[in-house]
Amino acid sequence: MMTPTDDVAAKTQAGDEALLAGDPAKARALYLEALAQTNHRRRSGLVARLGFVGHHLGAALLEIQRTIEAQGHTPVFVSDGMAVWHKSNAFVQQPAFLSVVEKHAYLLPLPNWHWNLQTVLWAVLQARSLAGDFVELGVFRGHTTAVTAEHIRFASWNRRWYLYDTFNGIPEDQLNVGWSGMNETAYKGTYSYEEVRDRFAAYPNIDVIKGRVPEIFQEVCPQRIAFLHMDLNSAVAEIAALEQLYDRIVSSNRRSSIAAPAPGTAYRPARPR
């Protein structure tokens, strides 16, 4: 007689076969059935697999997931650019978090951003007790803030969240070496100020600001910053931003407030703080 554990394993295997055969609908249905009856250690792999469904890298990421699992490692969670195992990932046991992540997943062309999002969520919750507003530099389509703001019901918070982006890609003079092609294909013409502004229209305390960093700070910038999230994909822009914003970050949280620098960014204050 097949045990519940055997049934979960069989459905997972069948889902994998369906995904590799190019049948994402069947794969998703099987993964969801298995997820509904599994324990914590297996949930991680199933949540990851659901993120592979329908993604152009899905089959490749599934092979990485299965290769690690075949070595006897659990839990395993594979995403774009990251694979972890034997690490705590309590978010797979949080239906409310998983639901809002899935709801907004279409905004980001990268699968399984859960780990990044739960890190941002943790930082935002820590910053809530500090005197200052929130800043995001590099918004793209608003994915990170959309997930976080909805999950924590940010509209009810006595804070403002400032979202800065050019909404037209990275300025040519701020490009990292080798990024011109990425700028043209991934950013230019793929998102707009109007789209993101409308996405946050229901939040009276979120401001979507179009402009080049750091020059835009001369027009709009909070005096005190409790949370700063940077993802400009430009070392030049991020260093310039920190030169202007570092002194505005509340002193008790300067280190934990600065998150997600672009590759190549290294910053040291010009003077002791």
Rank of each mutant, 00 (worst) to 15 (best):
V8M: 07
A9L: 11
A10R: 13
Q13C: 01
G15D: 02
G15A: 00
A18T: 01
L20G: 06
D23N: 04
D23L: 05
P24C: 11
K26S: 05
R28M: 13
T38D: 11
H40T: 15
S44Y: 04
L46C: 06
V47S: 05
I64D: 01
Q65C: 01
T67H: 12
T67V: 10
T67F: 11
Q71H: 14
T74N: 02
T74V: 14
M82D: 07
M82N: 11
M82G: 04
M82R: 13
H86L: 12
A90T: 07
A90P: 03
Q94F: 02
F97Q: 00
V101S: 08
H104Q: 04
H104W: 15
L107S: 01
L110K: 08
L110G: 03
W113G: 08
W113T: 14
N116M: 11
Q118S: 15
Q118T: 15
W122N: 12
V124S: 04
L125D: 15
A127W: 07
R128A: 10
S129V: 11
S129Y: 06
E136A: 12
E136C: 10
G138F: 03
H143S: 03
H143D: 05
T148V: 15
I152M: 11
A155M: 14
S156Y: 03
W157F: 15
R159P: 12
R160S: 09
Y162K: 05
Y162V: 10
T166E: 03
T166Q: 10
N168W: 13
G169I: 13
G169C: 07
G169H: 10
P171V: 09
Q174E: 08
N183A: 14
Y191G: 00
E195W: 03
V196H: 02
V196L: 14
V196F: 10
R199G: 06
A202Y: 08
A202L: 12
Y203P: 00
N205Y: 04
V208G: 03
I216L: 08
I216C: 01
R224F: 11
M230K: 06
M230P: 11
L232N: 05
L232Q: 02
V236L: 02
I239P: 06
A240Q: 14
Y246Q: 02
S251W: 10
N253Q: 10
R254G: 10
S257H: 05
I258C: 04
A260M: 15
A266L: 14
Y267M: 07
R268G: 03
R273F: 11
